[in-house]
């Protein structure tokens, strides 16, 4: 069963060049799905990355501009796109020159699956 999940997300990962990994976690950073690009060494993501995002997206929603949906962070070696799908957080890690628009376009294809994955978090 989980092979299907992995295959689907691996296909997504391969659609965008320069994308290292896709992570679906709960708001504390506990991973539900993690797909890594095999050709690149594992990236260690600190757990605070997720909990900080959860807080930051909550706070950013109070600016009077509506709900915060995505936070894109550009670093010197990586770019991290985090999507607010609370109670889930979807995180994409890519190279600094990876096409951000391509990553954002993946949101549509993920949405259908996230509703089912959310149940795993909400029921527990």
């Amino acid at each position: 069963m989980t092979d299907d999940v992995k295959r689907y997300f691996t296909n997504l990962l391969q659609k965008v060049s320069g994308l290292f990994c896709i992570l679906v976690t709960d708001r504390d950073g506990v991973p539900l799905i993690r797909i890594d690009n095999k050709t690149i060494e594992d990236i260690d993501l600190p757990p605070s990355l997720f909990s900080t995002f959860a807080l930051a997206t909550d706070q950013a929603g109070k600016l009077g501009l509506g709900k915060n949906k995505t936070i894109i962070s550009m670093y010197s070696n990586y770019q991290i796109v985090q999507m607010n799908k609370l109670p889930l957080i979807v995180t994409f890690v890519g190279t600094e020159n990876c096409n951000t628009g391509h990553i954002l376009a993946l949101e549509k294809s993920i949405d259908g699956y996230l509703d089912e994955i959310k149940l795993a978090v909400t029921e527990s």
């Binding site: 989980t2 999940v5 994955i117 795993a120 527990s124």
Partner: peptide, 9 residues
């Protein structure tokens, strides 16, 4: 989560 996902997928 792993167990739940296996059930729900």
């Amino acid at each position: 989560y792993y167990q739940k996902l296996q059930q729900q997928w």
